[in-house]
Design a protein around this nucleic acid. Structure first.
Lengths: 159, 159
DNA sequence: CATAATCTTGACCAAAAAGTAATGATTTGT
DNA sequence: ACAAATCATTACTTTTTGGTCAAGATTATG
C-alpha cells in the first residue's frame, strides 16, 4: 500500500500553485524547477490535472497554470482519485490471477479489509484541503494530527 | 495509494493456511488452485513468506506449507511490511525527481501527510490478525468495522 | 537405493508504470 | 504578419513490478 509517483508529484505541483498570490501563475519550467522534476514530466502531470478541472491554463507568452478553484475548496481525496485512476472500484476485477474472474467471487474474506482500508484512507483525505498543505513541515504535521485525531495513538505492537 | 499484487496474493495465500486444521498443510499446487494463481507464482510468494518467517515448509512427498505461528498471533501490518518491502521509511529517498535528493529536503509540507497516511494504514492493520480474516465476507466485514470503529462514518463530501 | 513428489533458487520474460521527446496549436508583443 | 513563448497531445523509451521457467536439492516410500 503505497503512494504512486504520479500521486506524489501531482500533489506537489498543485501545492506549488496553492502557494501563489491571486492573479499569479506558473509556467511548466517553473513548476519543474521548484519540484525537481523534468519539464516534460511536469507537462504530463499538469495536463492530467487540467483535464480533471483542478487547474486552468493560458497559452502563449505570459501563459502558465493556476488553480481553478480556491485552495481551501479542493479536497485531497478528489485529487488522489484522479491521479490514481479510481482504484477502489476496480479491486475484484484487477486481481484475478490467471483466471478471468476472481476465485472468491461472491464471498471473499479479505475483500472487506481491502475495501475498508481504502475507506479509511479516503476518509482521512476527505478532511484535508490543498490549502492545509501550505506551510512548513511542522505546522502541517500539527494540522494533520489535529484533524485526523491521531495524537500518536498507535498502540504498542506485538513482535 | 493501492494494494500491490504481491500484497494481495501473499495475504490470500496466508489466509488459506490459516484455514487449515492443526497438523495439516498445503502444497504449492493446492495453494495455487485455491487462489486461482499459477504454481510458479505461488512458489515465489511462499518463498518470500518463508524467508520472513510466517510459514514453515517441508519438502518431499507429503510436504507442504503451514503457518509458523498461530493465526491469531500474526498481525497484518507485519505481513504487509514484508510483502511491500518497507515503503514508509523510504519515502523521501525514492521520490526525488531528476535529482539525487528531494528538493524539499529538511522542510516539506506534504511529508507529514504522506507519513501520516501510512501511519493510519499501519494503525488499522496492526489491529487485525490473520485469524480475523477467516470466515465469510459478511462476518469479516462486521469484524473489521467493529475493530476499526468506522461504522460508516464517512462524511458527505463536497463535489 | 531408486523414484516420485515436493520445495528452492536464480535467471529469464512480460506487462505496467514512469518518464521523455517531438510535433502541433495558441497567444502575446512588436 | 511574424517571432517567441507557452501549453497540448501523442508516440516512444526506460524502469519497475509481476510472473514464468528450468535446473537443483530434499524427503518419503516401496
Amino acid at each position: 500500500m503505497k503512494i504512486s509517483a504520479q500521486e506524489e508529484y501531482g500533489l506537489r505541483c498543485l501545492v506549488q500553485l496553492a502557494n501563489l498570490a491571486d492573479g499569479e501563475s506558473l509556467t511548466l519550467p517553473q513548476i519543474a524547477e521548484r519540484e525537481g522534476i523534468s519539464t516534460a514530466n511536469a507537462g504530463k502531470l499538469m495536463w492530467l490535472l487540467n483535464k480533471a478541472g483542478f487547474v486552468h491554463s493560458t497559452r502563449g507568452t505570459k501563459g502558465g497554470y493556476f488553480l481553478a478553484r480556491p485552495a481551501d475548496d479542493i479536497y485531497l481525496n478528489e485529487i488522489i482519485k484522479v491521479l490514481d485512476e479510481d482504484v477502489l472500484s476496480a479491486h475484484c476485477v484487477s486481481y484475478t490471477g490467471v483466471r478471468d474472474s476472481c476465485v472468491h467471487n461472491g464471498d471473499c474474506g479479505i475483500r472487506p479489509v481491502i475495501v475498508g482500508l481504502h475507506e479509511i484512507v479516503e476518509n482521512a483525505l476527505s478532511r484535508l484541503t490543498l490549502a492545509s498543505l501550505v506551510g512548513n513541515e511542522k505546522s502541517v504535521d500539527a494540522m494533520f494530527h489535529q484533524i485526523q485525531g491521531i495524537h500518536r495513538t498507535i498502540e504498542p505492537q506485538r513482535v
